[in-house]
Design a protein around this nucleic acid. Structure first.
Lengths: 122, 122
DNA sequence: AAAACATATGAATATCTGTTCATATATTAT
DNA sequence: ATAATATATGAACAGATATTCATATGTTTT
């Protein structure tokens, strides 16, 4: 093993792209916290069970048992996932007696899914 | 413990929402495979390192080492994540000597991230 | 050819995530 | 009140995933 290679950068010694461009990039980068939240949002869309639930809610509000039956999932699994969707403000709910009806919380949800769909269907 | 409760459905006995609506839903649901692919796509966006990389590529193509330096990540981590992005056709690359320059592969990427950002910034 | 550099990759590890099981809560009907 | 039903939740387990470390590949320079 060679001597301490601490001095040796893990990256290339100089920027490949012109410095002005890179500096501009750094300025335009949103704060880490925002980027983290953004990743968290997409993480919610990144599960096929949740995607199915959201898709099911495209046409109409549904109660938990409807969703479970429709998608062939257990009530528990649906309930857990609805909690995730609720926490991330992708769905809202309305209680009516024993039932809880869920619906899409805003049009962003539909928009994001539709855009993703365009990419997938290419 | 009661007798075998196998007969007892885990879901409610009848659809809460009118049958026609639910039937229409079933018809409009894209096939499972597509929904799975869609979730896979969003999963790629669902990691802050990858989001940062994509954001960095908004303005200009960059080589691996530029990205690593810019975002304070190791070369290895960036390389692994670029592979994921490449596999999912979110970035493309161009080789130039020792360097490999990556760039966004199409405008869907920007669109999806921008829509997500709108939701996050609310 | 050898050294230096940029990038890629495989294996190992630690963390995160989704489902299941058991059970709790809440509402309605008897 | 008690039973039945719809939903929610906590704990445990299994599978997925991101990073790190070590090393390989490929290109340029000397």
């Amino acid at each position: 093993m060679a001597e301490n290679k601490h001095e040796q950068l893990e990256q290339c010694e100089y920027m490949c792209v012109h410095k002005e461009v890179v500096d501009k990039l750094v300025d335009n980068m949103p704060p880490d916290e925002i980027l983290y939240d953004l990743a968290e949002l997409f993480k919610v869309f990144g599960d096929s069970t949740r995607i199915k639930i959201l898709y099911a809610l495209f046409e109409s509000e549904l109660c938990v048992c409807d969703i479970a039956q429709l998608l062939g999932l257990t009530q528990t699994a649906v309930s857990h996932q609805l909690r995730v969707l609720k926490t991330n403000k992708l769905v809202r709910f309305r209680k009516e007696g024993k039932n809880v009806f869920y619906s899409l919380s805003d049009e962003h949800v539909r928009g994001i899914i539709n855009l993703g769909m365009e990419h997938v269907e290419e």
